[in-house]
Amino acid sequence: MHYIESGAGTPLVLLHAYPVDARMWTPLRVRLEDQARVIAPDQRGLGESSLDGSSAHGLATPPEERLVAEAPSVDVVAADILALLDELELPRVVLGGCSMGGYVATALLRAAPQRVAGLLLVDTKAPADTEEAKAKRIGAAERAEREGTAGWLAEDMLPALLGETTRRDRPEVVATARELIESQPADGVAWAQRAMAQRPDGLRALEEFDGPSLVAVGEEDGVTPPSEARRMVEALPRGELVVLPGSGHLPSLEVPDELASAVRPWLSRIEP
């Protein structure tokens, strides 16, 4: 699994959204690296992490050594993250996730809550998909497999991922988000959509987690709006909420200063 790491201090693992990769966290990572050891992995099939778990994209793996990709599941990605924590000899970390990364974080909570010293959920939600949402995901996965993603995925996703303020006033953020989306491999995009479509409801895992939890949400997020964030805070025994004005679904790109200002004091209170 490919990952980006910088800083020193409390280990903070940040799981990225769909359909981007660990680079979405760079503006936040550099703002926290004087306080935390920030580790941002590319989830399976996205960024530079392979779909079959055998190597990073761009590395030549002989055909006879390639593995068959496992069936799509956020539990598989959570297992990848746990294996990375073992490799890095990190028994406990502060775990953060945005959007799909939040679904993976919840899956990791179900599998190994003792590994999580604190939970940061950014623009994500707990409930499973409706049947309508599942069908939409499967349709997008099939289109990616059939056509690739060039020419349509970024155009479809950007209006939903970025808030109105960003789309109007921050062209450089729009360009960065577009580049991130357009660089993702079609097979990884399809696998991720199928994994998210099958995920279970996550409220129970949140209700059972008694560690410190911070839920951050962009005020302009139409994908997982502030109402979903409040629902998670109500479920978490030690949940705190911060709403970020001027941001949509990706505040680490859209308002990194404001997100860092919310995370820093919360993170300082956590004993890893």
Rank of each mutant, 00 (worst) to 15 (best):
E33D: 15
E33H: 13
E33T: 15
E33W: 12
E33Y: 10
D34K: 11
D34N: 10
D34L: 08
D34V: 07
Q35V: 04
Q35N: 06
Q35I: 05
A36K: 11
A36I: 11
A36G: 07
R37K: 14
R37A: 09
V38A: 01
V38G: 03
V38M: 03
I39A: 04
I39M: 09
I39S: 00
I39T: 09
I39D: 01
I39P: 03
A40E: 06
A40K: 04
A40G: 09
A40R: 03
A40L: 06
A40P: 04
P41I: 15
P41Q: 12
P41C: 10
P41Y: 10
D42S: 14
D42Q: 15
D42T: 14
Q43P: 04
Q43M: 15
Q43R: 13
R44V: 10
R44W: 14
R44H: 11
G45Y: 05
G45V: 03
L46K: 11
L46F: 13
L46E: 02
L46C: 06
L46H: 10
L46Q: 10
G47T: 13
G47H: 10
G47Y: 08
G47I: 12
G47V: 14
E48W: 12
E48T: 09
E48K: 15
E48R: 15
E48A: 14
E48F: 14
S49K: 04
S49Y: 07
S49A: 11
S50Y: 04
S50G: 15
S50F: 03
S50W: 07
L51E: 03
L51P: 06
L51F: 02
L51C: 08
L51D: 03
L51H: 02
D52S: 08
D52V: 02
D52Q: 02
D52Y: 02
G53S: 06
G53W: 05
G53K: 02
G53L: 10
G53R: 01
S54G: 09
S54E: 13
S54D: 08
S55M: 07
S55E: 11
S55K: 03
A56Q: 09
A56P: 05
A56R: 15
A56G: 15
A56Y: 02
A56C: 13
H57S: 08
H57D: 00
H57L: 11
H57C: 02
H57M: 07
G58W: 15
G58E: 06
G58N: 11
L59G: 00
L59S: 05
L59Q: 03
L59K: 01
L59P: 00
L59V: 12
A60K: 02
A60M: 06
A60F: 09
A60P: 02
T61V: 15
T61A: 02
T61H: 00
T61I: 09
T61C: 02
T61M: 04
P62V: 01
P62M: 12
P62T: 00
P63S: 14
P63I: 03
P63N: 06
E64H: 10
E64R: 02
E64S: 10
E64G: 01
E64D: 15
E65T: 00
E65A: 10
E65G: 00
E65P: 00
E65L: 13
R66D: 01
R66L: 10
R66I: 04
R66C: 08
R66T: 00
R66H: 03
